[in-house]
Design a protein around this nucleic acid. Structure first.
Lengths: 195, 195
DNA sequence: CCTACCGATCGGTAGG
DNA sequence: CCTACCGATCGGTAGG
């Protein structure tokens, strides 16, 4: 049964190419004709695999959001110190950014173009994610593992610092992914200053 | 002479409103008709003040880029420790992000929509900025003020962490701008862990 | 600063 | 999966 074996492969190709183009040019500036050309078919043929341009964005954004939320809940429930939880979360973010670069980038920067009700849904998941993330930091402060800083501010810094990996990705890296990961964890957890 | 006094005021209104809309919806998704409505004139009338949609983006991006570059050169030439230079740069970034939010945000996220030769020009300024920034960190490592981390990675973290202030801006802030600034500097320079 | 309009391109559909 | 095409909207111009 060779048809079942790779049944949805064309749709996957479309989603992958779309993620690449949405990252390069942005969602709004990517036309369905551009995308079709990259996939190697006519624009009209795209609609045999997807319902609309926005459906592609939805697939990308929620795929990423669900993956991150699942991991966060797993870490939250684990038996670790707060600093160890934070470190694990950050390493996950960094690895995701490296391994699923296009998708994660698009989910982070282009979600504003989602239509309702997906827009509200995504925004809620995002808010919920940050709230749980902040609560882990708060717990660390309470247990005296973490400095008394404003937890939401720390969340913003950690999440955005990681999203900066795009620049590393583009610049053809003089350091390996593993070195990058260790550098980021060191800087964010222990700071720049030498004690 | 009341005409000279506020000669370019309408153009300034257009640039300000455009920065707001480009931030909210992105450059590509903002139409000249949307913008005209916000300014309170017909779309065609915009062209009495600006040459094209792209010219607006150019004005925003290079205004910000020049301001940042000027400040960086001033700090670089100053007589301070590396850590003090870094702290001053970061405080400048944070203040700019708070005071000129729309403009700085657009310059950071929408510059990809610049046309040539502006696109290459902007990219070069950006690369140059990061190179100088990294050299300040390298100098700090050489003088033993800063940990032995990869300087380009540190630059990415510092710059992107600050750009995360958009989230603080949107969330109607429970802390003041000054508290935010101090929190960010602490976290990035001294880290999260309590020693 | 407006009315009137241009050619180009958009996302998407009909029908095969 | 394609050809042929739709109405809507885009950035921008002519002319006043």
């Amino acid at each position: 049964m060779p048809t079942t074996k790779r049944r949805s492969s064309k749709k996957e190709v479309i989603l992958t190419k779309a993620a690449q183009m949405f990252r390069e040019k942005g969602f709004a500036a990517t036309s369905m004709r551009d995308l079709a050309e990259r996939v190697g078919i006519e624009a009209a043929s795209l609609y045999n695999h997807i319902k609309s341009k926005n459906e592609i964005l939805e697939a990308i954004c929620f795929d990423v959001a669900n993956r991150f939320m699942l991991h966060l809940e797993e870490v939250e429930a684990s038996d670790k110190t707060s600093i160890a939880k934070l470190e694990r979360l950050m390493r996950f973010h960094i690895q995701e950014m490296i391994e699923n670069y296009e998708e994660v980038y698009v989910s982070d920067r282009e979600w504003k173009h989602l239509d309702e009700p997906f827009l509200s849904n995504f925004r809620n998941q995002r808010r919920q994610y940050r709230k749980i993330f902040a609560s882990i930091i708060e717990a660390g402060i309470a247990k005296n593992e973490i400095k008394k800083i404003d937890a939401p501010t720390a969340v913003i810094i950690l999440l955005h610092a990681v999203s900066g990996i795009e620049s590393w990705h583009r610049s053809q890296a003089k350091i390996t992914a593993q070195e990058l990961e260790n550098n980021m964890v060191t800087i964010l957890i222990d700071g720049l200053r030498k004690h």
